[in-house]
Nucleic acid binder design. Structure first.
Lengths: 167, 167
DNA sequence: TGCATTTAGTTTGATGCCATACTATACTGG
DNA sequence: CCAGTATAGTATGGCATCAAACTAAATGCA
């Protein structure tokens, strides 16, 4: 995602409304602000995870596997839950397997399938990173008071539920 | 950015707080909600731009060039304003130039530099996409009432200003 | 049973994105 | 003027990401 750090000058805004009359500048500005804030937050998470040799994609895979009773899932299921394509998930699993954090097993019932299991090293990695993650995220979210936070989450979810309007 | 569509089951949450005691579950949950909403919104924008053969990176470059009086800027300046590295900007410009939406010129004063100028086709592309973009974004932002919107933007900016806490 | 369809996963090729390293040019202090 | 440093831009290599094509296996229907 892109930051667009530079805000438009009032002069360029003038030019803009001349060329595209009737534009609701505040809507555009608010929209860009949201994208930028989100990008900043996501980048910060990237940086935190990078300190532990992780990236967001791989991190969420570890988290998803941890949730499973037997620490096991399939690429398709993981892709579905993580909201990426199967092709992307193949890449994540390749990387995690190379680093020994997960293992691939054949599924004896369905020979098209693989089972992906969190390894001991993967669990250790989670135990190393998760406390830091939890602490940082908690501190971060506490920047806002509880009522502000609740309102923010609710309104943002309301907005996101209508992304169909952008089409 | 990654979606993480699946919310944890209460059972897996139980397991989580057992393994990582004292975790403020609501902070984590709120954090993930924000990332997910942002990802949804950004993806929607991707889809809108894709209908016009554009991607976010290239789109913002066109927007930045449009703001310039002479429709011209340099790769470094664009990278700075867009919040990406110079290497990334090289890629954007390569793509835009290949499609004829911008042109590279030598800077006669400083032979290290290039000047990037929005082409006529680039301006036409903006004129094609911008009205759609403006209309969609305006409708989208109007999902929230003005006071809710203002609060959302303010609180999100407040939060994003403290990303230093995630480190 | 047998062929068509669906599903699981990978591969390929494109773009985006960064860090790092490299080249060429400009600047600066002696 | 020259050596050292800084700056502009590109190249390289790695990961993320998708769509589309592909392979293999399972399923469904006649």
């Amino acid at each position: 995602m892109l930051l667009l750090k530079e805000l438009p000058t009032s002069k360029s805004l003038e030019k803009f409304v001349t060329r595209y009359p009737g534009t609701d500048i505040s809507a555009i500005s608010d929209f860009v602000s949201i994208l930028r804030a989100a990008s900043d937050i996501s980048s910060a998470l990237d940086a935190l995870l990078a300190q532990h040799g992780l990236l967001q994609g791989r991190w969420w895979v570890l988290v998803l596997l941890m949730r499973q009773d037997d620490l096991t899932s399939s690429p398709s299921e993981l892709a579905e839950k993580a909201g990426v394509t199967k092709a992307t998930m193949t890449g994540f699993i390749d990387g995690l397997e190379r680093e020994g954090l997960v293992s691939r097993f054949m599924d004896t019932n369905d020979r098209r399938k693989f089972l992906i299991r969190l390894s001991v090293a993967g669990q250790q990695k989670l135990d190393e990173v998760m406390p830091v993650y939890v602490q940082c995220v908690t501190q971060f979210m506490n920047v806002l008071g509880r009522p502000e936070r609740n309102t923010l989450i609710t309104d943002l979810a309301t907005l996101a539920s209508r992304v169909d309007l952008i089409k």
